[in-house]
Design a protein around this nucleic acid. Structure first.
Lengths: 204, 204
DNA sequence: GTCTATAAAGAGATAGAC
DNA sequence: GTCTATCTCTTTATAGAC
């Protein structure tokens, strides 16, 4: 962050560019295979110039991951608070999760996949943020189960794991330039999670 | 492979050890962050000695990935051929997929996550094997849909993507020393995929 | 089949000028 | 805020002895 004339802390433009470039390159090549020189080239500057903006390469991975988790936690938390019944809260969660994770797909993919390249301290911190987010998911699932909106014959932990399976793997294949919008995908995943892929037996 | 006295090609013991160690280390640290020296240390030899067994580091990633895909394709193909109705074939697919992917979890995780570190030619070949496997999944899903066992209001492509989401993300969190056996997990995922997580409305 | 020794290249990061 | 120049370390891989 940078202090501007108005006294409020703001992220400098180069730093924002840098985080965006890092997200893209870390996702495309992996964190380890992305060099400082690639990052500099992406910004059109020399590699040494990067070190005016960051302390070390790992800082980018760390800040990226923290920001991605703060984003999804805030977006999903807000969506859930705004919804009425237990099942509506679950649907709001799925929508907000899909929308946020795919709107910032590079950062979310990197956060989920490159965590192991962080220093032990920072890794623990990021894991903590992830755990915090997963507890939010757990609460919504447990409440839906308590309200008889989700099946009672399956452990809540398993319902959560299956939901996160369904949501998280999407970052591997979703293309924002494809035919499916994020909202449409969220609809499909919601239906399949709640009602299943099986044909409904005729109710007559 | 190595030629023994009986004239048949067999994999040498060191090579098998090497592939196992590579799967574990590549999964734990990532391919790029795993050094030849770590691999050698794991086998109790010097790093230069590894080059008697392999041409280069990337060979290990390549062979690991091809073997993992051959395994799951064979196991799932056989399971599907042995099952009767369309829905039973789908259930057999899920079981065989979960059992195989988690029995050789390191190799499967590495194959799915470290693909980008392969040379372009080899990457294309591995992608080809993955596509081949996914087509098998697509056939089973499409047949179940045609037999009215899976819902007709959702594009088969989406039913496949959701199924692979549900199955593949499991490699991130499954622990073989945990309370849940592979078979039990497969049962849960089958039920949740077909019937959904929603509570069944009372049929009375 | 494994060793010691080392070549060759590339990595992250710093110093100091402008 | 960016540059040129460079240090230092680690990496993959090879050569040749045993």
């Amino acid at each position: 962050v940078d202090t501007t004339g108005n006294g409020r802390a703001t992220a400098s433009s180069t730093r924002i560019q840098l985080l965006r470039a890092a997200a893209m390159l870390f996702r495309r090549n992996g964190y380890e295979a992305t060099t400082i020189r690639m990052l500099a080239r992406q910004l059109g500057i020399q590699s040494a110039s990067l070190y005016y903006h960051i302390g070390k390469k790992e800082d980018l991975l760390y800040e990226l991951s923290v920001e991605a988790l703060r984003e999804i936690d805030a977006a999903v938390g807000e969506a859930v608070r705004g919804a009425g019944t237990a099942i509506e809260r679950l649907e709001a969660l799925i929508h907000a999760h899909v929308e946020t994770a795919l709107a910032y797909q590079d950062a979310h993919a990197v956060m989920l996949l490159e965590l192991r390249s962080l220093s032990p301290d920072r890794m623990q911190e990021v894991i903590g943020l992830r755990t915090r987010y997963e507890r939010l998911v757990e609460r919504v699932v447990a409440e839906a189960q308590a309200a008889d909106a989700l099946r009672g014959d399956t452990a809540p932990r398993l319902l959560v794991l299956a939901l996160l399976n369904l949501l998280n793997w999407t970052i591997f294949w979703y293309r924002s330039d494809g035919a499916l919008s994020r909202g449409e995908l969220a609809d499909v995943l919601t239906t399949l999670y709640v009602d299943g892929a099986g044909a409904r037996p005729p109710s007559g």
